[in-house]
Structures are given as C-alpha cells and as structure tokens.
Design a binder for these strands. Structure first.
Length: 422
RNA sequence: CGGGGCGUAGCGCAAUUGGCUAGCGCGCACGGUUCGGGUCCGUGAGGUUCCCGGUUCAACUCCGGGCGCCCCGACCA
C-alpha cells in the first residue's frame, strides 16, 4: 500500500477523550474513530489488524475441530423468553421493534440461537459432538462503556459452542478449546494467564478467564511464577479477607505476583443450563431423550487489538507484535523529490511485494521527521530507510521498531535480511 | 443509576466584572524555502461558541431545561 493513497489519518495530538494509552494510540494512529459512546469505526489500518487476529483465531479453532458459521444479530424475543433471559438481561440488551410491533433483541451473545439451531438438526448421539463458532458483532448496552474499544457497546466477538452427549465429551472439548486459546493468545504475542472464574450471566458451574496482563486491565489477579496457580484478586480476598498485602501460593507457598488483567477470552462449562430450558435434546444409545451437554467459548476479538497495544508500545507509539502487525515492513524514502531515492524505494517496494511481503510505502512528499514519527506511531516492526546518504554508499538501512537496532546493507543483503526478520 | 469533570474550527486550547470583527497552536489549501526524527516564512479557507428557552441595550460569558462526551463507583462472557 502506498501511503499517498491510503486512508490513514494520523494525529499529532492526543484527543482529550482518551485516557488509556491503547485508546490514545488507536485514535492517533488512525485505527479507529468514535461514532458514539462505546461505538467505534474500524479504519483500514485497524481493520487489517482485526482481520489478522481473526485469522489466527480461525486457524486455531479449525485445527481444534470447530466449524465456522454465521448467526443473526437480530433475535426474536420469544427465543429469549424460553430461557428467561429476556428479563434477566434486561436493559443490557439493545432492543428493536419491527413494523408489526414484534420485539427483537440485538444479540449480546448467542446461546439461544445456536441451541435453537442445533436442537432442530441434531437428534442423535451419533451426530455429536459438534463445535460451532462465529465472528460476530455483539451488542451490549453497557452501563458504562469505557476505554475506547476496550469496553464498547458494539464489538466483535468470536463465540463458540460445543455440544456433547455427556460430561466426559464436554471435558474433552473444553480442554481442546482451552488449548486452542493458549495457542491463540501466544500467537497474538500476549503475556497472559488462565484463571478460574465465576460465570456471571452466562451460567454453568465452571469457567476460565484468559487475562492479558496490563496495568490498565479492569480485572485483578494473583499468579504464581513458580507454578500455574492463578486466581482472581476478588476471589482470593473472599477466601482470605485478612491478608491484604500478600497472597501466598497454595501449591508452592511462594509469594504470588499481583497484576491487572484484560479479559480477552472466557470459556464456560454450561452443562444443560440452556439445553434443558429449551428442550434441546437428542436420543442416546438407549433411546432415551437427553439434553445436550454444552460448553461456550468467547474471545473479545476487537478487545485483543487494544490489549495488544496496552502490552506493546512506547513513547513514540504502537509496537506491533509481528503476527498481528498491519504491515510487516514500511519503506521510507526520505526525500521523494530526489529521483534516485524515489526510484530506489519504488524498486524495493515492488521487489518486496513480489515476494509476498506485506509492505507499506511512505511515498508522501514529507520530511524525514514526519515519516519517522508516523512510522513509529503506527508501529510497523521493520523500517526500511532509503536516503541520498545511504545511496551514496550503496547502502539501505533497516531499523527495527522495537529495539532500534540498525542494519546497513546492500540491496541484495537487505532483501534477505528482511525475509529473515519478518 | 450515584459522584465528579467537560462541551468554542478536523485536533489541542484561549477569550477580564456580561461589551469591540470569537482568538492562538497544530492540521488543511496555495506560494516560497528546507530535506535523516513532526523545517521556516508568507497568504488563505474553515465557527449555528452542543441544543431550546429566558434575563439584558448587549450573552461564549448569567439563569432554567434538555442532549452529548469523559472519569470514579456500582455493574459486566
């Protein structure tokens, strides 16, 4: 992509509405813009990142045997009354009325819809298990939307649902999903912890949250460096209300670390909570009618983008983890009015594109400083600098966003170095 | 919903006790200049001062009502 043609508005100043760094940088780097409180537009650069995150999740979900589908956001009231959640969800659910005065909810989650679908099609234990998932815009009329995209009223979620004939089957799928989640968050470049949690509005008796560690997180956890034990701060205080300062690991007796966390994923053991109420049943080996044993697996896709920035930035801007960076490389001709510099950059840009590299060319007639600042702000991991100075000694400069490390190489070496870096 | 803050050009801000043509920086357009970390100079465009009503000779400013946005809390896959 050429920057002269890109819709990529960056800002020098920090909009006063943004308090936390990810929100500030998402606005400044031109990833998002606000339409209303808790409602955001994804601009091209932000949307590329969102799609990269989606692609990682999709790959891992598919690898774990889940199948992607797409369910409606518009959901009839009657379905929600089957589970009683039309009342329970209450004001949190956005509602619309059609021309015949029929009520619909804008889906804040999809247990009812998916259970309705499966109960109509899956009648036998022979058809189980099945895991279905989707990427979808969810609507929740949050009491207080905040921190930009972190807690929005409209956001992108990956929600998956497993249906099993028994608890043993659910446990297997639950483990599979937990492993898929670990793979996903690792690939997203996160420092994260998995922690057992309460299950809130979704229900069931067991759930795990996946927390990306960040001091702006809305949650608080204790985790043990020595072993895997992790717990939510709230629950640890309930267990040991007296000890405020220190939390000792129950397993290895060491002092635990405290951290804030951003909830990027949540898995639930639902059991028969929805299937029972919705009479969603199948016939087992003995011909007996049984409700499906369900699990539910959510990931805040858009929230991941914000969380990644919270974990990876500096004073100059975003530092994208390689796997979700909108571009792998940015080519910076420092003076496009200098013909050799311009041509050199164009040639390199073309060469990289032909090799399948995701490359952004800053072909704007701007000063070097402006280009450096913008490149750092939008956080592309590898900068390739073409200048008269470098050309004079037949050298191309490669500079890494994260470490500032510099390589000065000839064109051929530069191409292979880039290949090695991305 | 309780508490707090804010609303003036795309962004960040200013405008004395109510008083002059509502300014400044950034950004934007044009011209020149400069060219390795947001150059410098000049010219210019851009405003329903959130909305409605009131007080007044006069309202960005005061009063009433409404709307919107942000923060803390409660809440929350």
């Amino acid at each position: 992509m050429r920057q002269t043609q890109a819709f990529m508005p960056t800002m020098k100043e920090i909009p006063s509405e943004a308090q936390i760094v990810s929100h500030q940088l998402m606005l400044r780097a031109g990833l998002i813009r606000k339409l209303a409180s808790g409602v955001y537009e994804f601009l091209p650069l932000g949307y590329i990142v969102l799609k990269k995150v989606e692609q990682i999740i999709r790959a891992e979900m598919n690898a774990a045997g889940a199948q992607e589908l797409l369910l409606p956001a518009l959901q009839p009231r009657e379905l929600w009354e089957e589970t009683g959640r039309w009342e329970i969800y209450g004001a949190e659910m956005m509602k619309v009325i059609d021309r015949n005065k029929r009520y619909f909810g804008l889906g804040p989650t999809h247990e009812e819809v998916i259970t309705d679908l499966v109960r109509q099609e899956v009648k036998s234990y022979r058809q189980l298990p099945v895991i279905l998932y989707q990427f979808q815009t969810k609507f929740r009329d949050e009491i207080r939307p905040r921190f930009g995209i972190m807690r929005g009223r409209e956001f992108i979620m990956k929600d998956g649902y497993s249906f099993d004939k028994d608890e043993a089957g659910l446990n297997i799928n639950y483990q599979k999903m937990a492993q898929a989640y670990k793979n996903i968050f690792t690939r997203c470049g996160f420092d994260f912890r998995m922690v057992q949690a309460g299950s809130g509005n979704i229900g069931g008796n067991l759930s795990h949250e996946f927390m990306a560690l960040a001091n702006t997180g809305e949650e608080a956890i204790y985790y043990c460096d020595a072993c895997q034990v992790t717990l939510k701060a709230k629950e640890s205080e309930e267990a040991q209300p007296a000890t405020v300062e220190k939390q000792i690991c129950s397993k290895c007796q060491k002092e635990m670390q405290y951290s804030r966390g951003i909830e990027v994923g949540h898995t639930f053991n639902l059991g028969t909570k929805y299937s029972a109420k919705m009479k969603a049943t199948f016939l087992d080996e003995k011909g007996e009618s049984k409700p499906y044993i369900m699990g539910c697996y959510g990931i805040g896709v858009s929230r991941i983008v914000a969380a990644a920035i919270e974990q990876s930035h500096d004073d100059h801007g975003i530092i994208w983890p390689r796997q979700i960076s909108p571009y792998q490389v940015i080519v910076l001709p420092l003076d496009v009015t200098n013909e050799p510099v311009k041509v050199g950059a164009e040639d390199l840009y073309t060469a990289l594109k032909n090799k399948g590299v995701e490359v952004l060319l800053d072909d704007r007639d701007e000063r070097a400083g402006v280009k450096f600042k913008d490149a750092d702000l939008i956080g592309i991991p590898v900068k390739v600098i073409i200048s008269a100075r470098g050309l004079a000694e037949s050298r191309i400069e490669i500079k890494l966003r994260k470490t500032g490390e510099v390589f000065k190489l000839n064109t051929e070496e530069a191409l292979s170095k880039i290949k090695e870096l991305i």
